[in-house]
Design a protein around this nucleic acid. Structure first.
Length: 424
DNA sequence: TCTGGGGTCCTAGGACCC
DNA sequence: TCTGGGGTCCTAGGACCC
């Protein structure tokens, strides 16, 4: 049996832990640049504020109902997430951290416990340790645990814990769920299935297997198997190393000057190199993209992208910034108003594989490489101790394009100097 | 006026090898 | 006029997740 523990309205709940005045009131958290809703309290959902809705279109509604509107504080949410996961790790031996606010637990071995009772205990413990409310779904496959979780969230009679185990319980639950509510069935596939008169999760579970295999491929076939109680998706306790790492941002204002764009690209390349070092990986390719707003008129739209290879796989800030600048030079076009840019590093390999990959014409300078590595270590430890951005390369500069964050809450769990700003 | 960021997997097709 | 069989690697595009 699997249990899926999912934090309720996670970002909104994090904000409430440190600002109790938000409890019982509508709260929304905005995406970077204060663009869209990415979390809503129950009260905000009840007002009809949709997930992903652009905030500016709902300004009047937000004002009228005195909704608390907050900029995303990912530092806070990331730290709260690790506290929730640490608590779960103490309560179940096998855990897969699936996302910032969700974890699967393998509870197959818990034969002497009553699963729903133990789940209630897990929920209460997480609440006591972190202040975050959770819902828990239990089922014989991950997909059914997800479905159970959805019911636990939607129907208050479950009191936050729902278990689907007998074939009869499963059938009744699947009859309630719409096909688009199934984990792994997105908008496109839901539309395709509904056109074929497959409307509920139950319809999908008994649909023709060859038809599902043909139109939804192996991915859809697995989902169908899982709904029928045959587990295809194992618990993944060890996260596989990342294959790509991306840093991108929308800008707080339109950027037109090449130097300002170059600084944005340099900053993102620097962020990617830090992520690489944290991951313990080296990149062999660097991709830069720059673009105008997708909502511009067609004549004012531009989307430029360029990938360059590195001579030697690297996690070095200076090497990556140089490569990114080279790519940027190839795609910059004068005369557009840019709204977003990003850097993607790929062709990743473990840094620990030691034997550095040499190119035919390079003479490796081991002493210089060693110095460079120590420079990065020194930068990382200074930024770790005195706060990120304490030391950076000159190409990293956020002055011109810095995203808007007009309603940012304090980083209560990670920055001493921000604790005092808590209001009640 | 204002619309997020970071990932994965799968398939199809093309270029290439012997 | 007719033109094999068995592979790999890479990329683009489309779907999905949070």
């Amino acid at each position: 049996m699997f249990a899926l523990v999912d934090c309720n309205n996670f970002y909104a709940s994090c904000e409430r832990v440190f600002n109790p005045a938000l409890i019982g009131r509508p709260v929304v958290v905005l995406s970077n640049n204060d663009g869209c809703f990415i979390a809503r309290s129950e009260e905000a959902k009840a007002l009809g504020l949709p997930m992903g809705g652009p905030a500016f279109k709902y300004r009047e509604l937000l004002r009228k109902h005195r909704v608390s509107v907050l900029s995303a504080n990912f530092t806070l949410y990331g730290d709260m997430s690790s506290r929730v996961m640490a608590t779960l790790g103490e309560l179940a031996p096998e855990i897969e951290v699936y996302s910032i606010d969700e974890a699967f637990l393998d509870i197959s071995g818990f034969t002497s416990f009553d699963p729903p009772r133990y789940a209630t205990h897990i929920g209460a413990t997480v609440r006591r340790h972190t202040g975050i409310p959770v819902s828990i779904g239990i089922g014989p496959t991950k997909t059914l645990a997800k479905a159970a979780n959805r019911l636990a969230k939607k129907d208050p009679r479950y009191k936050g814990v729902c278990m689907l185990s007998s074939p009869d319980e499963i059938r009744k639950a699947l009859a309630i769920l719409r096909v688009g509510d199934i984990w792994g069935i997105g908008r496109q596939w839901a539309r395709l299935l509904e056109a074929g008169n497959i409307r509920t999760a139950l319809d999908f579970s008994i649909a023709s297997e060859p038809w599902v295999r043909k139109h939804l491929h192996i991915t859809g076939a697995r989902i169908q198997q899982e709904l029928n109680g045959r587990s295809c998706l194992p618990l993944e306790q060890v996260r596989a190393p990342k294959q790509t790492i991306c840093t991108s941002r929308s800008f707080g204002r339109t950027v037109t000057l090449p130097d300002e764009m170059r600084q944005a690209v340099g900053t993102f390349a620097g962020a990617c190199s830090r992520k690489l070092r944290k991951e313990g990986s080296l990149a062999s390719m660097v991709t830069v993209f720059i673009c105008t707003s997708p909502f511009n008129k067609p004549a004012e739209k531009y989307w430029g992208t360029k990938t360059v290879a590195l001579h030697i796989p690297s996690d070095d800030t200076i090497a990556l910034v140089r490569a990114a600048e080279r790519a940027f030079g190839a795609i910059w076009r004068e005369g557009f108003g840019y709204k977003k840019a990003g850097v993607i590093v790929s062709g990743l390999e473990p840094a620990a594989s030691a034997a550095p990959c040499l190119t035919l014409f390079d003479t490796p300078d081991h002493a210089a490489n060693k110095r460079q590595q120590r420079l990065m270590e020194a930068m990382d430890s200074l930024n770790c101790r005195y706060g990120s951005g304490t030391i950076r390369v000159a190409a990293e500069n956020a002055e011109a394009w810095r995203p808007n964050q007009t309603m940012l809450s304090p980083r209560c769990t990670t920055a001493w100097e921000e604790i005092i700003t808590i209001r009640t």
